[in-house]
Amino acid sequence: MLRRLSAAEAAVGGLLLALIFVLTLLQAAQRYLPGGGWVWTGELAQFGLVWLTFAMAGHLAARDGHVTLKVVDTVAGPRVLRLVGIFANLTVAVVCLNLAYEAYALVTDGSQQTSPALDMPLGWLYVIPLAGLLLTTVRSVVAVFLPEPETDDGPAVHAPAVHGAAPDAGPAEHEEP
């Protein structure tokens, strides 16, 4: 189920990235065309960037793909790393759950505000962030119990480097003596 979720998140992320790309190109092309431009292209591209950020948050959390400081990784043992990972994932889950609650309040607000160019109800803007925050919460809770980041082939296996082998060396260099 997590693999299907990852595939769906990656597909949504790819579609949103393509949307941003097309809208940005369209906006640039409008500068050279006679007549007025379509203001909504810039607004939708900005919304797309916000949606992309939240839609991919869970996917990146599951693959340990977020920008992180790896200072603890170089000085701590495996047990300390595991405790730090549990603490970090629980913190992310709590924060995302609180943000999801606020996003839900914005979605169900019933406000009549709309975006300036698209005339889109602003409650709609927060639907994808709400889903992304809930998925990131789920991924963080799963990571507490299943700490290995996912790959396309399943959980990643981290083999320690032996005999000064480079970290990106193939499996043959990582064999135990």
Rank of each mutant, 00 (worst) to 15 (best):
V12R: 04
G13A: 05
L15V: 11
L17P: 05
L17E: 01
L19R: 00
L19I: 03
F21M: 13
V22A: 14
V22W: 04
V22E: 02
V22D: 03
V22L: 14
L23R: 01
L23A: 02
L25V: 09
L26N: 06
Q27H: 14
Q27D: 15
A28S: 09
A28I: 13
Q30W: 09
Y32T: 06
Y32N: 08
P34A: 13
G35C: 12
G35A: 12
G36F: 10
W38Q: 09
W38R: 09
T41C: 15
L44A: 15
A45D: 03
F47K: 03
G48P: 02
G48A: 02
L49N: 02
L49R: 02
V50Q: 05
V50M: 12
V50G: 04
V50Y: 13
W51V: 04
L52E: 00
T53I: 10
T53Y: 00
T53C: 00
T53R: 00
F54G: 01
A55G: 07
M56G: 00
A57L: 14
G58H: 02
L60I: 04
A61D: 03
A61P: 02
A61H: 11
A61Q: 14
R63W: 02
R63N: 07
G65C: 07
G65L: 07
H66T: 06
H66E: 14
V67S: 10
T68M: 06
T68R: 14
T68P: 02
L69I: 07
L69N: 10
K70E: 14
V71Y: 01
V72N: 08
T74N: 11
A76R: 09
A76H: 04
G77K: 05
P78S: 15
R79I: 07
R79C: 08
V80Y: 01
V80R: 08
L81W: 00
R82I: 01
R82K: 06
L83R: 12
G85P: 05
I86M: 09
I86L: 15
F87R: 03
N89E: 06
N89Y: 06
L90N: 04
L90A: 14
L90H: 07
T91M: 13
T91R: 03
V92L: 11
V92M: 13
A93P: 06
V94M: 09
V94Y: 08
V94T: 11
V95I: 15
C96I: 08
C96T: 11
L97K: 05
L97P: 01
N98R: 15
N98L: 15
Y101G: 15
E102F: 13
A103F: 04
L106V: 03
L106A: 08
V107D: 05
V107F: 07
T108N: 11
T108H: 09
S111V: 04
Q112C: 04
Q112K: 07
Q113A: 13
Q113I: 01
T114P: 01
T114Q: 06
